[in-house]
C-alpha cells in the first residue's frame, strides 16, 4: 500500500506521542503506584451495617499521620457526612454502597471513584491544604442524586 512520505512522518510522530503518553501513565501507575481506584474486595450490600469496618463508619487512626476513612454510601447520603481530618494526614478512603451505584468525588482533588453495591472501593490521598472540601455523588442514583453531599474539614 502506498503511503505518502509526509504521512509516514506524521504517523511516526503521532504514534510516538501515544507511546510516550502510555509510558508516562503506565510507569506512574505500575512503578509509582498511582493506579486508578480498583479495589477487589467484595461485601454483601445488604449487610453493610454489620460488616467491619462499615459497622462503625468514620475516621480511624492507623498510624503516625495515617488514617482510614470508612464511608457508607446510600441513596441519598454519605455516612458520616461531616468529617474532620488533620492537615497533612495520609488518608485511605474506603467506600461501599448499600443500594445502587453511586459516585464518590471531592471536587478540586483527584479523589474520584465509582461506588458499587457488593464492592468496596478504595483510594489513598493526602490532604495538604486546610479548608473545607465537598464530597458529592457523581453517578446518577435517583431523584435525590444532586442532593447527596458531605463535608470534610481539614484542620491544622
Amino acid at each position: 500500500m502506498h503511503i505518502h512520505k509526509y504521512e509516514k512522518i506524521w504517523l511516526a510522530f503521532g504514534i510516538g506521542c501515544l507511546i510516550v503518553f502510555l509510558t508516562v501513565v503506565g510507569v506512574s501507575a505500575f512503578a509509582a503506584g498511582q493506579q486508578p481506584p480498583s479495589c477487589l474486595t467484595t461485601i454483601d450490600p445488604e449487610k453493610v451495617d454489620s460488616t467491619p469496618p462499615f459497622d462503625h463508619p468514620g475516621l480511624v487512626k492507623k498510624g503516625d499521620n495515617e488514617y482510614e476513612l470508612n464511608i457508607v454510601v446510600a441513596a441519598f447520603s454519605f455516612t458520616p457526612n461531616t468529617i474532620e481530618i488533620p492537615k497533612g494526614a495520609k488518608v485511605t478512603i474506603n467506600v461501599t454502597s448499600k443500594d445502587v451505584i453511586h459516585g464518590f468525588e471531592i471536587p478540586g482533588t483527584n479523589v474520584n471513584m465509582m461506588v458499587e453495591p457488593g464492592y468496596v472501593n478504595s483510594l489513598t490521598t493526602t490532604f495538604d491544604k486546610p479548608g473545607e472540601y465537598t464530597i458529592l455523588c457523581n453517578e446518577y442514583c435517583g431523584a435525590g442524586h444532586h442532593m447527596m453531599t458531605a463535608r470534610i474539614k481539614v484542620v491544622e
Binding site: H4, K5, Y6, W10, C17, V24
Partner: peptide, 26 residues
C-alpha cells in the same frame, strides 16, 4: 509525490494541540 507541505504543517499543529492539552491535564 503530490505537494502536501500544508497538510504536514496542519497535522503537526493538530499534534501540538493534543500534546499541549494532554500535558496540561497531566
Amino acid at each position: 509525490e503530490p505537494a502536501l507541505k500544508g497538510t504536514l504543517a496542519s497535522v503537526f499543529l493538530l499534534g501540538f494541540f493534543i500534546i499541549f492539552a494532554w500535558v496540561s491535564v497531566y
